[in-house]
Amino acid sequence: MTQRIGTAATLRRVASLATVVLAATVLSAGCATATRDEAGSAPAPSPSADPKAALLAAVPDDEDPAFRFSTAEGGEKFNGVVDPAARGVELSVSQKNKDPKFTMAMTFRIIDEALWVRVKLTGIPGLHDRLKLPKRWMTMDRAKLSDASEVPAYEGADPANMAAIIQTAGTVEDRGNGTYGGFVDLTANADVRDNFSSVDVDALGEAAKKVPFTAVVGPDGNLTSLTLEIPAAGKQKAMKLVARYYDFGKAPRISAPTGADVQKAPASAYEMLNG
């Protein structure tokens, strides 16, 4: 059930790069800145004879309906929707720039290899027009991207890579009421190590091999959250990394933008993503 690691880290890299590119464009153009789930009523899952296998079985797969997800890594957050039946995913992230002061919200929509991007800029009046970036969905040609591997793609029904992380646990404890716990090894392989952009795994030393985690499986049998308790190390403060999957069967299906809501991406969009 594991997949290629990187959705979260890749999205953050792309959004950060795009924000830097836009900020430089704004400055060079001399633009002035503006001054202005509830728990279900069904019974909790019964304790399992093999807690690790039970927990891995609860991770979403291609048979699951559309659902929402979110992750929080330190101060960085992103969210989205996964639709396994459509091989589709929508990923959203927001970045703030201090000088000049503006906020960029970027959303990627992917169905198989098809890619659309929508950008919303706030904080500076008329910024979309000045940067020649439309407010509608933009159809992107991956062949025109300097490094298409850096752009998010549909990688399966586990965008936060929970299965890959759980796999590194030597043992998993069933604590009852759908709650599981144990320790995971962030040094187990390069893929897991590279999944966290705000964690210095090397600085954690031996502690990186035994990071406490708590996972919760909902009454419907779906994994709803995974929390890692990252200890303090050097200049790095202790933090919680939290991934959530929710609204199974309630989230909107992923479909291609149509009509007046979509256009071909202009050159400015490729300049933004290519840096």
Rank of each mutant, 00 (worst) to 15 (best):
V81Y: 00
Q95P: 02
A143Q: 12
S94G: 14
R109K: 13
K144E: 15
D83P: 13
T139I: 08
E76W: 03
H128C: 08
T139W: 04
L133G: 07
L131I: 01
N97T: 09
D61E: 07
D147P: 05
D64Y: 09
R68M: 02
L145S: 05
M140W: 11
R118T: 11
E76V: 01
R142G: 07
P65G: 12
F69A: 01
A57I: 04
T107H: 02
P84C: 03
R118A: 07
S94R: 13
D129A: 13
R109E: 11
K120H: 12
R136M: 10
T107M: 03
I111C: 05
R142M: 10
A86V: 04
D64I: 05
G75E: 15
F78E: 11
E76D: 10
R142N: 10
D62Y: 05
K98L: 14
E90N: 11
V81A: 00
A143G: 10
P134I: 03
S70T: 03
D147G: 12
N79Q: 13
K144G: 15
D83W: 03
S94F: 02
T107G: 04
A66S: 10
G80K: 04
H128V: 07
V89R: 02
A148G: 00
S146T: 11
K96M: 06
P60Y: 01
A148W: 00
G123W: 05
H128A: 10
S92A: 06
T71Y: 01
